[in-house]
Nucleic acid binder design. Sequence first.
DNA 1: TTAGGGTTAG
Length: 614
Amino acid sequence: MSSISPLAGAAPATHFPITTNKTKFQNPDNLAILIDKAKTIRHLRQIHAFLIRRHLHHDRVLNFKLLRSYSSAGNVKHSVSLFNLTQNPNVYSYTAIIHGHVINNLPKQALLFYIQMLTQEVYPNAFTLSTVLKASNSISALHCHAHKLGIQSNAYVQTSLVDVYSRTGDILSARKVFDKMPDRNLVSLTSMITGYIKNGDVDKAKVLFDMIEDEDVVSWNVMIGGYAQHGHPNEALVLFNRMMKSTRLKPNEATMLAVFSACSQIGALESGRWAHSYLGYNAKAINARVGSALIDMYSKCGSLEDAKLVFDWIKSKDVVVYNSMIMAYAIHGFTRDALNMFDEMSERSLNPTNITFIAVLNACAHSGFVSEGRALFNSMKENYNIQPKIEHYGCMVNLLGRAGKLDEAYELVKSIGDYADLVLYGTLLGKCRLHNNIFLAEKIVEFLIERGLATSGTYVLMSNIYAELGYLDGVARMRAMMKQNGLQKEHGCSSIEVNNEVHEFLAGDVKHPRSKEIYLMLDKMNNWAKENRTGGPVLHRSVEVHSEKLALAFGLISTKPGSTIKVVKNLRVCEDCHEVIKLISKITGRKIVMRDRNRFHHCVDGLCSCGDYW
DNA sequence: TTAGGGTTAG
């Protein structure tokens, strides 16, 4: 028997209390309890050794329990050894070994055991079906099995079907199963809600969520996380506040991860800090998941310092932690630090992922590190065996285009042929606008219109290029085309957090209670700008009431003199606003931190950290 | 014995 014993080399350090009371553990019932209690492989090995010594390892129940515990502890190999020793495995043993492979992310092997089970004429039951469903790509085949076996109405089977159908994007089939369920409970309802959220339909999810009566933390986490993941951070925080007021629900780590994500999107530093303290500032060790979310939150809320502090606290840093920190440096324009971090990762033998490359390429783009970026892009395939995705091409187009190498960027876009999408062309068009390359811009716009891909952004960019060069008929033509196609410009929206409250402004917004004072301050700001303007294009009057200026004006009248003002904008900051913000930082002596769609701008004494390169 | 939740991204 020793040949299959997984005990070889087991360290005898901390002993599980198996040796303390031998007579007590002669009883198989007590041993079964002991197996269930054991959490680590080492403890399981000790028990296993004991079973072998006492010739108890052929006991069906103990063997079965040990098999399951080994897989739960992450060692499915030991489970397989035990399974192979089982004579005439029954549906229990098969289900356990299939489950073991599923939870250890080995779906193929799980299915092989399922097939073996069928060929041995052992009939699957509801437990088996709900387990094997997770591992399968051919759900419909298994759905048929369920019918043949007469277990299609089992709640567990149905919940798994809902889960798997929606995870593969077949939300209609998921809903069909869900609607047929004779008794839906909290778990099946949550599963359906998750399905809608995974498919981006937050509204349908909310309808079901509101139907829940016996709510629990998981269903709330799904809904809060759903809002956070799909660009509704405010709704996520509103729901979280409701959760905090409830006496029955207590947020846990998963809740807080969603909250961090929501705060990072809004740029709500104070709320984010509060959420961090709720989870425990002084938690002995921050795990990688929480750590990554915190780094992301602090960096996107403007505090690179806090992001770095959190990074340093994390004991076991994985690649996601590094990715978050590299991205943090990137959006703040600290390109050197981002690249150093990338090197540090390699030194620690952590393999970069495709996301790592998005982060470093972004970092390069923000500072015009063209040759470094090119080298990294090439090394992806050559040194790391990572095929560049469309996102990486996007980063390269951004990097090359920003640096004025429009032709090279265009060649790169053309090189991927039909895979090039609107976003990629949109990025290139944005760079044409930056360098006023009307010829390439017209070529791209024509191409996009031909393929029916033109959006409001396409027309706005082209119109801006015409305006910049004084081609007013071109401007009019673009506006007309937009109108004809029923397109509306995406609205700029800026927010500012004052006293733990987030205030949002749209362009020309007059809905704020202190609107009168805000516009008085805005007049002052625009006058300062006019006095200091040195040429530049003729601007549309709407620029004077851009949302970022409104948020800044509110910041100036509602915060202490000398304190830092932080504004978050959903789109990229426009050139005029960028100039005005720099100027105001000089006139008022305030530090102004502005986060736009792409990155941070730290303005101090009339200068911006982006070096006007963004 | 079995079913629902979590971080990074142009």
